[in-house]
């Protein structure tokens, strides 16, 4: 099945706007005006009818019901926590414990599990295409966009009753404060205080339940205008580790899920509006 690349014309146009606005913000405008312009730009691109991330949603919908793999079945019997094939509200309750795997899984870990066990897909190929780029379409990103979109308008309900979910939360908190590497950074360096900014970019406060944690977590997955691609939480945390000068993390590592459990707890009750669109 061949699938077209999403909205690159629109993306290029939007990137031009970003560059123009970034230029304004750093030269002509005073501080407050710069922030106001960036806010105006965010509002301008936040239009579902013009968000290329919805092309990922459409592709994900097709992938979900497409028979594939050595077993030639679709994903429609995949249980994301609400029962086989039940997608409404599933993303709002992930990560969670799955008895059949005896593990806590985020959406991407669970999709991996279903692709491998139910479909018998070539998982090396799935992982190789985990992050899309020029000439690379990611099944994971498309499926996450489709499934997460089925929780749009709902609120995060972190699942923390099972002992393994509690373990993930405690580990996630410890990892949030874990300082290491050549810059002594931890997640808390940038997200441990309220109302801070890195350069002009506002930082969500993630050390406590907060409005900015709700807004931030409620906006993933997102369409990244600067990368012309849809991005998932796995990619967001991969990029955080890169910026923190940590080593490259393994895709689908349990440590990433532990952090996601911790972050979802800080975002509890926050409304999900995805896929969103960001700079």
């Amino acid at each position: 099945m061949t699938r077209p690349r999403a909205g690159s014309g629109l993306a290029k146009w939007a990137v031009t706007i970003v560059c123009v606005l970034a230029g304004w913000a750093s030269t002509t405008f005073a501080q407050d005006d710069g922030e106001k312009e960036i806010e105006r730009y965010r509002a301008m691109i936040n239009d579902p009818m013009a968000n290329p991330g919805f092309l990922n949603v459409d592709r994900g919908e097709q992938l979900w019901s497409l028979p594939r793999g050595s077993k030639n079945v679709s994903l429609e019997q995949c249980d994301l926590g609400m029962g086989p094939g039940k997608l409404e509200g599933a993303y709002a309750r992930l990560p969670r414990y799955f008895a059949d795997a005896d593990r806590v899984m985020d959406l991407e870990q669970r999709l991996y599990w279903c692709m491998e066990k139910l479909q018998g897909l070539d998982m090396k190929d799935i992982v190789r295409r985990r992050f899309s780029g020029p000439g690379v379409v990611s099944d994971m990103e498309d499926l996450v966009a489709f499934i997460a979109n089925k929780s749009s308008g709902m609120k995060y309900e972190p699942q923390l009753s099972h002992p393994k979910e509690k373990e993930m939360l405690a580990v996630g908190e410890a990892m949030f404060y874990y300082r290491a590497g050549v810059a002594d950074f931890s997640c808390a360096t940038c997200h441990g205080d309220e109302g801070k900014r890195i350069r002009l970019q506002g930082l969500p406060y993630l050390a406590q339940p907060s409005k900015t944690a709700q807004e931030s977590m409620g906006s993933w997955p997102t369409y990244r205008v600067s990368q012309s691609q849809l991005r998932t939480m796995q990619h967001r945390l991969w990029d955080c580790f890169r910026q923190s000068r940590f080593p490259q993390p393994d895709y689908l590592a349990d440590g990433i899920t532990a952090l996601t459990v911790y972050l979802t707890k800080q975002a509890a009750g926050g409304e999900i509006n995805v896929p969103s669109i960001k700079r």
Partner: peptide
Amino acid sequence: YIKNTFKSA
């Protein structure tokens, strides 16, 4: 957990 997160680096 941390060791396993970066085990392929």
